[in-house]
Nucleic acid binder design. Structure first.
Length: 262
DNA sequence: ATGCCTTCGCTTCGAAGA
């Protein structure tokens, strides 16, 4: 089985690329982030006849997460227990959706950006990760053999190797000790990044800013990951980042990450 | 070995992205 995650930066603007990507790589399950649309705006009709089912959660033009699967979509869950809220008045954001796909509990996660160190959005980001970690630890406590894939845009570059320039990111979000600690705390909860050993760095990224020729200049970040429970990690045969998808007109600023399971 | 930012909704510029 082949699973993948991709921050598409608008499903409506990118739907043709998404369908082509699924076909080109023979993907079974795709976790999508930043659909940037409401339910009534999601291009469901494009997926009719492709053999894929879709579940989507979107509230407005921001965020939005979906799962596209041809191996079934069962027991859909929107958000997670204790998920922090944002805004005034505080409200849930569309940053997490989950479904059972071919025996794997697949999560599509869009971790809050953080914006700036010291910004309230950074507190929100850290609280969001902490709440998710607590929940995710509980899922394994309930069933140590569960196959769980925490896939998405984590908005954290876990190591210095995951940033094109540590100097350029001095004092910036995505690389702070607090964010990296929050990311690695998932290891203590029983989840490991299943992609890195198959996509070694340095210079291996999943995101390149649209501005200043970041992609051709190889100025990127590695921030999109699949964290697997022990039972899922044991099934991982390989992983790859589809850099080709970042090229050309109409590309997302993120590249898809693909994981092959036995 | 790719191309100088893109998306959305609408105060057609501003907010958000990272």
């Amino acid at each position: 089985m082949r699973i993948a995650t991709w921050n598409v930066n608008s499903m409506r603007a990118r739907v043709d690329r998404v369908v082509a990507f699924l076909e080109r790589h023979d993907v079974d399950v795709l976790a999508v982030q930043e659909t940037k649309c409401r339910e009534d705006q999601f291009p469901y009709s494009v997926f009719e006849g492709t053999g894929y089912e879709v579940t989507h959660h979107g509230l407005n033009q921001w965020n939005g997460v979906a799962i596209i699967s041809r191996v079934g979509i069962e027991d859909v869950q929107v958000g997670f227990a204790g998920m922090p809220q944002w805004g005034d008045p505080a409200a849930d954001e569309a940053r997490a959706i989950s479904a059972l796909c071919g025996g794997v509990r697949v999560w599509s996660l869009y971790v809050p950006n953080g914006r700036e160190l010291g910004d309230p959005h950074m507190d929100y980001k850290l609280a969001w990760l902490e709440a998710l970690r607590t929940d995710a630890a509980g899922w394994l406590a309930d069933d140590a053999n569960a196959q769980i894939a925490l896939m998405g845009d984590w908005n954290v570059a876990p190591t210095d190797e995951d940033v094109w320039s540590t100097e350029a990111f001095e004092g910036k979000t995505h690389v702070s000790p607090a964010e990296r600690s929050a990311f690695f705390s998932f290891n203590d909860a029983g989840y490991t990044d299943v992609t890195r050993e198959h996509t070694p760095g340095p210079g291996t990224y999943t995101y390149w800013d649209y501005t200043q020729l970041s992609f051709p200049k190889k100025r990127g970040l590695r921030i999109d990951f699949c964290l697997g429970s022990p039972a899922l990690a044991n099934r991982v045969e390989s992983a790859m980042i589809d850099r080709e998808e970042r090229k050309g007109k109409g590309a997302s600023d993120h590249a898809p990450v693909i994981v092959d399971l036995t």
